[in-house]
Design a binder for these strands. Structure first.
Lengths: 341, 341
DNA sequence: TTGTACGCGTTATCAT
DNA sequence: ATGATAACGCGTACAA
């Protein structure tokens, strides 16, 4: 592989000039530029990214840490990730997928991270990924609320989860439902903590007692119960325990489909017997389902875009003011899975 | 950020020794190791990844190029990507998500790629990503058949797509279907070319004439028709053109759901009036659907794992023989969406 | 424009 | 067998 000196020699210019031709940091005369480019093409030369990074101290890559221990995306993650990649590429940045917790097992953090900043998805309480970023002085943005003991504030982009869950509860309660079942995300995720609090709050506001069968948390992704959690809980609560639940709130589309199946197996119908609401579901899936499922549009793409923009501000790629904690709008999309009783 | 000299000075050893403590390339005495690590912890020192890469000429990252211009994954991609990340991390490698075609617009290839190798997903005919890899001398593995004019063979992992489509056709034909409709992937993808050929072959083998309404290709991802392609084609062919199609083969789960909807809107039922077969669908989605959908299990995780292993062989991280072109098994999973007529 | 001193580790060589 | 020394990798940036 040709290097800068080879080009400099053949083009009869200095290294610095070749560097300038490529980086455009200083003007170069037309003729020289031509000559250098011509030689570069001949030698198939491109500047070495690593050598460049060593001096500029920029890798032009951002990390994207995916959920703790998760090797499973749902539609929300997918759309989010796509938006991040696209938006980052717009500023010339590449995206490095990270799974710090998993890697720590094999490769105990034996070198610095080759990234300029990071987007941390779905933080958990005392998220070690965040501690690591903090320690490594890597600028980062979280998507979701940070709940780490030693970190009092961090840049973040998020939905208003308190408002989300309370408005869903109000929506269902207004339709006459008083016995709700909430299939929440995994209990370690900060979002689930906020939503549980919101759920309890909403129940409280309507003088409805919160019973144990009303709130459930998704099992850890590594467990066997993960895949059919929605199915299992629905069968258990409505079937075995015979609780008179009339509406179920499912955390994501996968859980919702699983619940739908359980309801069918119990000989019940949606929405006639049971109403079903999905918090974060893929739009096209919600529509294709039968019946179509009412859901909350969390705008995952917008979350992705804004988190990258916020990070770019922290990296000084973008100038000007930008809120450190941005809230992305969400709204209820009514479809056919919730009925009035 | 502390550097190696700082540690060396405080630990009263030389740079080289500190380097050896971290890289383990040469043994170091117990005491010295302790002293160096202690000082490193105190200074919060970790070797600079970039500087290390500059000399070792390894970035410990592999690229993963996602489908041409695609900012939309389906379940197949998701599972594949997850497997790649996990398997790569097993060898200490990180994964850099790539979208060369899109980036080329903004950042015309002005530096070398900071990756040691790459996995190229879903190649197209004359895929420029592959040409670029070839040119840049970057070891790569494709997932799918390569059809580039100037490249006669490349390392790859793939399903046997010819066998896949012919066995699906035979399966349906055995059930009495003779008027099939095949909703294929985008026509640029090499996989769609192989499958179209296979489809025609299978029809030919059963003396069934291939009519124009039988084969369709998914529109480009950027087009408006992308999202409801399955719906639109089904309505058009079965509704408007009144073709007596009795079985539909859908390329992926999204298309399948979309088709399912169209069938419902046409007042028809699956599988009583129309049979539906999905080529690559997320297992849990196929099961949750009503009726559950018969599909082909392509083993996306296995494809991901094996493509990384093949790449690791090319990078000499793994030693020993490994087939340059590995075929991953696939098999029909019968569910409730296909009936005999 | 050119010359040259960096940046920050690694590794080959030499010394103990 | 370990430790120390110095050259090296490949660009960038700044003074001349």
């Amino acid at each position: 592989m040709a290097k800068i000196d080879d080009v400099a020699r053949l083009a009869k210019v200095s290294k610095g000039t070749v560097s300038n031709v490529f980086s455009q940091k200083r003007p170069t005369s037309k003729e020289v530029t031509e000559r250098v480019m011509s030689v570069s093409r001949k030698l198939n030369y491109v500047p070495n990214h690593i050598a460049r990074s060593l001096v500029t101290k920029k890798t032009m890559a951002i990390g994207l840490t995916i959920p703790h221990g998760s090797f499973f995306f749902n539609a929300f993650h997918t759309q989010f990730i796509n938006a991040v990649i696209l938006e980052a590429s717009y500023y010339g940045y590449r995206v490095l997928l990270d799974m710090i917790p998993l890697q720590k097992v094999k490769t105990p953090f034996l070198s610095s991270y080759p990234i300029d900043g990071a987007v941390v998805m779905s933080p958990t309480t005392d998220d070690e990924r965040i501690d690591l970023m903090h320690l490594g002085q890597i600028p980062f943005v979280t998507v979701g609320k940070v709940m780490n003991a030693n970190i009092d504030h961090a840049a973040s982009v998020d939905n208003d989860n308190m408002k989300i869950i309370t408005s869903i509860c109000n929506y269902l309660i207004d339709k006459g439902h008083r016995n709700l079942m909430f299939l929440n995300a995994n209990e370690l995720m900060t979002v689930s903590i906020v939503r549980t609090a919101g759920f309890i709050q909403a129940m409280h506001d309507h003088q409805i007692e919160v019973e144990p069968h009303m709130i459930h948390h998704k099992p850890a992704i590594l467990s066997n119960e993960y895949m059919d959690y929605g199915y299992a809980e629905t069968i258990r609560v409505l079937g075995k325990l015979k609780k008179q639940v009339t509406a179920i709130i499912a955390d994501d589309d996968r859980t919702a489909f699983s619940v739908l199946n359980a309801i069918k197996d119990l000989g019940l119908r949606v929405p006639e017997d049971i109403s079903l609401f999905v918090i974060c579901g893929d739009l096209s899936m919600m529509v294709q389902s039968n019946p179509s499922l009412s859901s909350m549009d969390l705008q995952p793409s917008e979350l992705g875009i804004q988190s990258v923009r916020l990070l770019m501000h922290k990296l000084d790629v973008l100038k000007g003011d930008f809120p450190e904690n941005k809230i992305i709008d969400s709204k209820i999309i009514e479809r056919d899975s919730c009925s009035t009783i």
